[in-house]
Design a protein around this nucleic acid. Structure first.
Length: 489
RNA sequence: GGCCCUGUCGUCUAACGGUUAGGACGCCAGAUUUUCAAUCUGGUAACGCGGGUUCGAUUCCCGCCAGGGCUGCCA
């Protein structure tokens, strides 16, 4: 199966677009077909420089690599495939040729109406509570007049002539049987006065020429589908199957917009989300596996995805679950990869981390405690700089550690550590000695371990006392205990 | 206004005539625990409304209501 994703280069990649791209990608991969990327830049006024690179880079981050069409090669925009060009602005001659065919066959007609007249016409229609639609003023022009005005080079567009008496039907892959009455469909502009095609013409021509057999796009295109069907028919082409995916919604259920939150995929990249987490989240917004599985690597999505299980109703883009998925995916990283990923992040603030041979072991202590890599420096800082230990931190009412008790506790801890040699400096050995000491001194676990952990880390919460002591080593542990002891005297 | 789409816990969703309406996130409680996370257990919470059809409707039909999309020489 050949599917495509066809964004407009108007800025960033919208998360809704990413989901559409994901679905198209999954179906292509599932059928061992091709996933194409086409750029729809027929609106000269909206194209933004750099947007193509930006969108491609984001798709690359997500791992949705196009097999054909526009793609990034060594960071540069390139086009690959035999059915190009894949950037619509480079295809205008093609569209003009097909537009001429439509004109010749009588499926389209030139329209000379000025924007002003059209605006007035619409206003009048609305005032009369009529549906705003082109009144076919130019359809009634005589052949000579048309020829004359064309001859003069008068500005005009080309409109699709909708057979008003027809009823257009098709079977949507997601929504089922669809039906539209011709007289409710407007005579759509196909070719603009600047010679560029509108989306409608370009979509039909391109998806036919590029042999796309399944068009996956947002629900906002549902009501223009009859126009597209008519175009395929006018050209005598087999139309593709259509799957209109439900919209992603704001909290108030309106179409997801920039105004009400982060809709740019880049924003989530910047936040530090893993592509696996975002894709997993997006896949489940509108699709379900029919099982109770929640965690889906891309490969499993590819295996299990099906349009039959795509939801018809729109889904509110609520990122709470995304956060949870992010945590899940963090924990799924191998220890080694996790360490490699956070090392540069920690190194930015603590250069020593870059040279630290113990770094992987230390990183392992926080893997299940963080959600984003950027949290790592704050959590591992105590390995690379002296913690700021205060009496307030060392004492803890909940653990029944009073300031008065601290000297005694810290002395006990120091004794334990002094009595534990380097070669027996393990969690088990320390545990054993600590519990023996507890009994002798009449202290509870909390009373002895809270101050130990606090003295070593300077943090109200952190990995456990024993883990930290072992990761820090005997010497540093003793030094920090002494520092803390000095503080409480 | 017209056309079209949609309607199950707060959110994402399962169910395809008969279920104590299931799961996940969130939230709450408990367990674990030196802290914070993580983890485990339990709890909270939904079929928009009204008519049909049927022995029986969340499920099928109709109407209503609500929300949304489109209604551009934007995509």
């Amino acid at each position: 199966m050949r599917t495509r994703f066809a964004p407009s280069p108007t800025g960033f990649l919208h998360v809704g677009g990413l989901r559409t791209a994901l679905y198209a990608y999954l179906l292509a991969k599932q059928t061992k077909g091709k996933f194409l990327l086409r750029i729809e830049d027929t609106d000269q006024t909206r194209s933004v420089p750099g947007a193509i690179e930006n969108i491609l880079a984001t798709l690359h981050w997500a791992g949705l690599h196009p097999d054909e069409g526009v793609m990034l090669r060594k960071g540069v925009v390139a086009q690959e495939g035999t059915k190009g060009p894949y950037i619509q602005s480079e295809r205008v001659e093609i569209y003009r040729k097909f537009a001429a065919e439509l004109l010749a066959k009588g499926h389209a007609y030139p329209c000379f109406c000025s924007p002003e007249r059209l605006t007035k016409m619409r206003e009048a229609q609305i005032a009369k509570k009529q549906a705003p639609m082109y009144d076919r003023h130019c359809l009634n022009l005589s052949k000579q007049e048309i020829a004359q005005r064309l001859e003069k080079g008068e500005s005009h567009v080309l409109r699709l002539r909708i057979p008003r008496e027809r009823t257009l039907t098709y079977e949507d892959e997601i929504r089922g049987a669809m039906q539209f009455k011709g007289h409710t469909v407007d005579d759509q502009v196909l070719l603009k006065s600047d010679g560029f095609p509108t989306y409608h013409l370009a979509h039909v021509v391109d998806d036919h020429l590029m042999e796309i057999d399944l068009v996956i796009r947002g629900e906002e295109w549902l009501s223009s589908t009859p126009k597209h069907l008519l175009l395929f028919e006018a050209f005598g082409w087999q139309p593709p199957r259509y799957a209109h995916v439900p919209l992603l919604l704001n909290k108030d259920k309106s179409k997801l917009s920039k105004r009400q939150g982060d809709v740019a995929t880049e924003e989530y990249i910047r936040e530090g989300y893993l592509p696996e987490a975002l894709l997993n989240f997006l896949a489940l917004l509108g699709w379900n596996p029919g099982s109770e599985q929640e965690i889906f690597p891309l490969a499993e999505l590819t295996e299990q995805f099906s349009l039959e299980r795509v939801q018809k109703a729109g889904a509110i883009f609520d990122t709470e679950k995304l956060l949870w998925l992010q945590g899940q995916w963090m924990r799924r990283l191998s220890r080694q990869e996790f360490a490699e990923r956070i090392r540069p992040v920690v190194g930015e603030r603590f250069p020593d981390a870059l040279r630290d041979s113990h770094f992987p072991a230390r990183a392992a202590l926080i893997q299940e405690r963080l959600t984003f890599f950027k949290e790592a420096p704050a959590m591992l800082g105590f390995f690379y700089e002296e913690p700021k230990v205060t009496v307030e931190l060392l004492a803890n009412p909940k653990q029944k550690v009073t300031p008065e008790l601290l000297p005694k506790i810290l002395r006990a801890l120091t004794e334990i550590c002094e009595a534990t040699l380097d070669d027996e400096w393990t969690e088990d050995a320390l545990k054993e000695k600590v519990s023996a000491k507890m009994k002798v001194e009449g202290l509870s676990q909390g009373q002895i371990l809270w101050p130990l952990r606090a003295a070593l880390t300077g943090l109200p919460y952190s990995p456990g006392a024993y883990e930290v002591a072992v990761a820090l080593g005997r010497d540093t542990t003793l030094t920090r205990l002494q520092t803390a002891a000095a503080r409480v005297e």
